[in-house]
Simulated assay, not measured.
Amino acid sequence: MTHAVRAPELADWAMSQGRGALTTAEVAELLGVDPDQVRRRLHAPARRGEWVQPVRGLWVPVPPEFRTWGAPPGMEIIDMMMHHLRVCYYVGWLSAAALHGASHQAPQVFQVGVDRQVRDRSVGRTRFSFAQRNVEAVPTISHPTREGTAQVSTIAATMLDIADDLHRAAGLDNAATVIVELSEDPTFDPADLIGLSTTFPAAATRRVGWILSRFTDRDDLAPLRDVAPGLAVSPSHLDPHSTVRGSMDDDWMLMINRDVEPDT
Rank of each mutant, 00 (worst) to 15 (best):
R206D: 14
V38Q: 02
E50H: 00
D239A: 03
P201S: 05
R245G: 11
A163S: 11
D36Y: 10
G246I: 08
M253T: 11
G246V: 11
N257Q: 14
R207K: 00
E65A: 07
D217W: 07
V60N: 01
D164Y: 11
T199S: 06
S183N: 09
T154L: 08
P139H: 03
R86M: 10
V227Q: 08
T24S: 08
H83S: 15
I77N: 00
I162D: 01
T145G: 02
L231S: 02
A232K: 08
S122M: 14
A4Q: 11
M82K: 02
P61C: 03
A102M: 06
A191E: 10
L10K: 00
V227D: 06
D250E: 14
H3C: 15
W69C: 12
D36C: 06
A203W: 10
L172P: 07
P235D: 15
R127Y: 11
Q105D: 13
T24F: 09
C88K: 11
V114Y: 03
D165F: 07
N134W: 13
E136G: 15
R67Y: 07
V112S: 01
Y89D: 01
S95L: 12
V138R: 00
M159V: 09
F66D: 04
A203E: 15
W13H: 04
D189P: 09
R86F: 11
E136C: 13
G49E: 10
T187D: 11
D259G: 06
T68A: 13
R121Y: 06
A106D: 10
S213L: 10
W252C: 00
D189N: 10
V112D: 01
E136N: 13
A11N: 01
F130W: 02
A169T: 04
D120Y: 11
D249E: 11
P190W: 03
Q37W: 08
I155C: 04
A228P: 10
V109S: 03
E261K: 07
P186M: 09
S95F: 13
T199R: 02
A102P: 08
N134H: 15
D239C: 06
E26F: 05
A131G: 12
A44W: 14
F130M: 03
E181V: 05
R56I: 06
D239I: 09
W59L: 07
A228R: 01
S122G: 09
R214F: 06
H3K: 13
E76N: 03
V5R: 02
F66V: 11
G20Q: 07
R125C: 08
E26M: 14
W59V: 05
H241F: 11
R121P: 10
E181W: 09
D161S: 15
R86C: 08
D217C: 04
P35W: 07
T216I: 07
V135F: 12
T205N: 05
